[in-house]
Nucleic acid binder design. Structure first.
Lengths: 274, 274
DNA sequence: GCTTGACTCTCCCCTGACGGGAGGCCGTAA
DNA sequence: TTACGGCCTCCCGTCAGGGGAGAGTCAAGC
């Protein structure tokens, strides 16, 4: 006979757990001193405790375990096993989805972070063509949130990149701007009111802007300065890629927003043909 | 502004959940009528609710979500995401182990069940060689439980079949029986006090016995009758395979025990050579 | 203005599988 | 005699809500 403490060491179950299993009629001590209330377990119960631990490892609930231990190993055993198997598998499936979504999320965050660390200067680079779903709006910029929301609801898991805005205006308009909210997608799929197409690639100048959106004009000034110096001719629409901003989920801190301005250009006209 | 019921329909969150989120400072209504205590939500909170639902789908706890929503999307965001990713993955791994164990368990139960349904008569069949780990005992049969326990603890996941007993006696011994408890294993592995070897295959007579062990003698009588009728010569050790019995986990009901008696034999001497 | 029915409020208890701790009993060693 | 260790019961807390009681509120129909 073992006291509860000794039995606890033998079975790796805590004293609390043993008392709880007693209360739940799952592992009843072989004898209980009627005076002191002390629980005493015998050797055969070590095996039983091991079985319970094993079944807990199979993710059975205590009430299932009670049922299993009292069952005579008949047909119901197989039924219970299969039910449990299905339940655990579906839970795994659910968690698997979460893991994949988390991985995607982490990937994007890492990208945004590495983007945010690169140089803070005007650069030339080549853009590859990009398949996007877009909604064109004439009005206020504040309406773009609604457009991004609509696209992301329509395309869900087909989304594959950071949101961007195409600006068709050549000057700044407050109330009557002409712009298009776009999200990169993996697959063609037609949705009412959404334009799906491939944005052209090509040579562009790019500047990564760090800070709130109302300071964007400074970065625009720098990038146009660069274009003018080289007599490059900016093509509309210009693009703003929101590497880090108020996403679907987090508002974030405007000081930490990271936006990339991309302007495709035609090379200088006169001497570039050689 | 939406009442809590309307907002509940918009967000697919129950009223109870919304009140709970309010209490937890996770989704605070835009305004609360100071007289009636009624909660009123505005349109922007639909997005927030959607974000919370999404994060719940990623298996974040509510306190993590509160932290995430209040964070400014800085470095800690990536840390929290990675922590969560690791946690969910390890949970999946754990559940995966449970699923595999359950599958093995179900397989064995199915086998036992189909075995139990086949004919209840003496049969001849061929046995294939079988790798086993065994402990030989001279004493009482009641000691075999301990031996099975020891083997299964030593070989754990290498086990791959039903327990069996080899009887080296040619008559029945009560107190001084000579027998060996064996468990089929997948892999050679030496353990002190355990004999690992391949049991030979060959032609045998087999009889499936249904019922408690103290009725085994009736089945033995039938199988030896069969052997004698054909002048087959029984080889020792004879085998008892416990298709369904008091396992590591369930005691089960002795009336439902299923045991297969296997006796390898040498064919009759005189006429069988043709 | 009144009633009715639908809606909402707060408050309390319930889940599962324990963990933490308070306060008390018992036996033994210093 | 006191201290200590082991054991007991009882109560509360976890997490993310669910269920229900009893009371107050809102809007529509009469």
């Amino acid at each position: 006979m073992f006291s509860i403490g000794e039995f606890s060491k033998l079975t790796q179950l805590t004293v609390k757990t043993l008392r709880f299993y007693h209360e739940q009629d799952i592992l009843v001590p072989a004898c209980v001193d009627p005076d002191s209330g002390y629980r005493y377990y015998d050797a055969s119960q070590v095996e039983l405790a091991r079985a319970i631990t094993y079944l807990r490892g199979l993710e059975f609930s205590l009430s299932d375990i009670r049922e299993l231990l009292q069952s005579d190993g008949g047909d119901d055993l197989l039924t219970i096993l299969e039910r449990q198997h299905a339940a655990v598998k579906s839970r795994i499936k659910q968690l698997g989805k979460a893991v994949r979504a988390l991985e995607q999320f982490i990937l994007e965050e890492r990208q945004a972070k590495s983007m945010a660390q690169i140089i803070n200067d005007v650069q030339e680079k080549d853009l590859t063509p990009l398949l996007v779903a877009g909604i064109r709006i004439k009005g206020r910029y504040s309406e773009c949130g609604r457009a991004f929301g609509q696209i992301s609801r329509s395309y869900g898991r087909h989304l594959c990149g950071k949101p961007l805005l195409l600006h068709y205006d050549t000057e700044y308009h407050e109330a009557d701007a002409d712009f298009e909210a776009c999200l990169p997608i993996r697959q063609m799929k037609d949705v009412e009111g959404v334009s799906v197409r491939e944005l052209p690639g090509g040579r562009c100048v790019s500047l990564v802007h760090r800070g709130p959106y109302d300071e964007l004009s400074r970065s625009y000034a720098r990038i146009f300065q660069y274009l003018n110096d080289r007599k490059y001719q900016a093509l509309v629409p210009t693009r703003e890629v929101y590497l880090k901003g108020p996403g679907m989920i987090f508002k974030g801190n405007p000081k930490k927003y990271v936006t990339e301005i991309q302007i495709l250009f035609a090379p200088a006209v006169k001497s570039d043909r050689r």
